[in-house]
């Protein structure tokens, strides 16, 4: 895999064009797509997360790295699916009802995708019923909710109650985040986890699904 190290570098620096080119070259030379993901791409995103923690990277760097990751994954994912490799998990993500803010939600979605998850983006102003439907009909095993406003955060609680009502609460892990959200609030409403930033949402999702980070 060392000959494709440039893929790792391209993701770290957010160079989508190079990421795609190296991936094409690697696949053309019959490199194992799963090894590209596990040995080069996911470690690159882990490093992006580490740099974020260390104040070396901020949101712009996260975004361009996630975009580079995505451009390479678009080539690889069909191959993985064709041979029956499952994604790390299937996440239904959305900004809760009444709330139209999507910057944080989009960032988390991009990072989760980069972390090997299949992401079903439900958009903004997502009703509890829409989250329930994504779990029932699309078999999501993670529900990720975002809220920017103190006035809309109660919709998270309502959604968790709706999941219970629908009898699917046990099938999913519920993760929440957003400016006014705290760990205490997550515990209070019975969410499984909370993250205060996008990169650590990936580790959180993996932890709750029992996947080794």
């Amino acid at each position: 895999m060392q000959e494709y190290k440039a893929l790792h570098e391209a993701i770290l620096s957010g160079d989508a064009k190079t990421a795609r080119e190296v991936t094409e070259r690697a696949l053309g030379a019959s490199a194992d797509p799963l090894r590209l993901v596990n040995e080069l791409m996911i470690p690159a995103m882990d490093e992006v997360g580490r740099r974020f923690e260390c104040n070396e990277y901020f949101v712009p760097e996260l975004l361009i790295s996630a975009r580079a990751m995505k451009s390479a994954l678009e080539l690889i994912r069909p191959l993985l699916l064709a041979r029956g490799d499952q994604p790390a998990g299937r996440v239904a993500i959305g900004t809760v009802k009444g709330d139209l803010h999507d910057i944080g939600k989009n960032l988390v979605a991009a990072m989760l995708e980069g972390g090997g998850f299949e992401v079903i983006d439900l958009g903004v102003n997502v009703s509890p019923e829409q989250f329930v439907a994504a779990v029932k009909e699309k078999n999501a095993n993670v529900v990720a909710m975002s809220a920017l406003l103190t006035t809309t955060m109660p919709s998270m609680k309502t959604t968790i109650e709706a999941l219970k009502q629908a009898g699917v609460r046990d099938r999913v892990k519920v993760l929440i985040g957003g400016a006014p959200i705290t760990q205490k609030y997550a515990e209070e409403i019975g969410a499984d986890g909370y993250s205060d930033n996008a990169p650590s949402a990936v580790g959180l999702a993996k932890k709750h699904l029992g996947i080794e980070a």
Partner: peptide, 13 residues
């Protein structure tokens, strides 16, 4: 200013 380790950066750093 609410980003970064010390919450003394903007979202874009």
């Amino acid at each position: 200013f609410d980003a970064g380790r010390d919450k003394d950066r903007t979202m874009t750093g």
